[in-house]
Design a protein around this nucleic acid. Structure first.
Lengths: 196, 196
DNA sequence: AGCGTTAATTGATTTACATCAAGGCGCTGA
DNA sequence: TCAGCGCCTTGATGTAAATCAATTAACGCT
């Protein structure tokens, strides 16, 4: 769908067809094939990214060279390194396509124009930030308190559709465990469910 | 200091003396003694909290009855359950005083008035949110990739002054480890440093 | 001063998960 | 068609941190 972003903003930020048309010049559309990078560690993240279709992931690499997945972004999600974007620092994460992906990229100018043309965009934007914070808090809570199995169950409950689109080792990485451990967790769950 | 919030806003949000005086009616000041609760799990968080002096902590309790500290808030910090505040849900966290603490509480009305009287408040507010997100991202990254020792070292590096004001078991809880483990981590570090 | 309570340490043991290593299974592509 | 490569699984072993338990240290309270 070429105009998913328009639809999304009409729905969530109550932006009219006309208002969107005025903003369109401030957008950039791009396509990425699986494996291609949207952002590389060390670069400064200069724009926000909205996924129109496909699937992206962001991840960091630790000193030992291990990847840690920070976020998945399927269609209708935003992704980007806010720290880098907002404070102009080099990014500590990579953003990479998992599926063939169409994105819309935009920067602060777009946001200002949008807020100017329709004040409800400001409300929408803050809601986005607040929601992001809530989601991050929830994840920290899980990492602090839940076992590997509980975290996996929570994942499939929350992102059910993604479990079929993402290779298992990436889910393991997101959960903070090894692929081997996730495999065993799944075996255990299968065994438990059989017994019913 | 009674008017720490005024100072803070003058410094960070460029709010003048006059502007602050107009906003003051929308503020509530409160004092909490050590152990007293600012917010209880299950309540809806109806205001933002700014710490003028003292120290608060927020924590959640898991199914097993264990506490997990989400945040410390010393003077000049904000704290609150944004999820609950913004989406009107019952809070999943408790906020409690560690030291005798003076706070300022305010709600959306205050923020709107502030943005109205000085637009730079909006910029400040967004910066606050962005910064919060960055901090949460960093913590997730640490929880995913670092050992107990690395997390402790990062903590004392980042919040050096707090390490002397917070009991050790609370630091352990913040780091996601047991007090016993933190005690051993510290013993190890002491041994290592001696050898130099 | 002496008591109770809570915090910190230390040791012994257990456990969840990581690591290392090997094998199978399904792609894809010359 | 089958060689090669990811991905997933399984088993054996290792290890960081949890748990359990006991001791000491520090703190308010009457």
């Amino acid at each position: 769908m070429a105009d998913q972003f328009k639809k999304y903003l009409a729905d969530k930020a109550m932006l009219s067809e006309d208002e969107f048309r005025e903003l369109e010049p401030f957008l950039t559309r791009k396509h990425f094939r699986p494996g291609e990078f949207v952002l590389l560690e060390g670069d400064v993240c200069k724009s926000h990214i909205f996924v129109e279709s496909g699937l992206l992931r962001s991840y960091s690499v630790d000193e030992a060279g291990k990847e840690h997945i920070l976020q998945f972004a399927p269609e209708n999600w935003f992704i980007g390194d806010r720290g880098s974007y907002y404070f102009g620092e080099p990014s500590q994460m990579n953003i990479q396509a998992i599926e063939p992906t169409d994105v819309v990229m935009f920067d602060q100018l777009f946001i200002e124009k949008a807020m100017c043309s329709n004040p409800s965009y400001g409300v929408f934007n803050e809601r986005l930030l607040q929601n992001h914070i809530r989601q991050l808090q929830g994840r920290i809570n899980l990492l602090l308190s839940a076992t590997a199995e509980q975290r996996y169950l929570h994942f499939i409950e929350t992102y059910f559709d993604l479990t079929f689109r993402i290779p298992q080792w990436m889910i393991a990485s997101y959960l903070g465990i090894t692929p081997e451990s996730l495999s065993r967790v799944r075996k255990d769950l299968a065994r438990k469910n059989q017994k019913v």
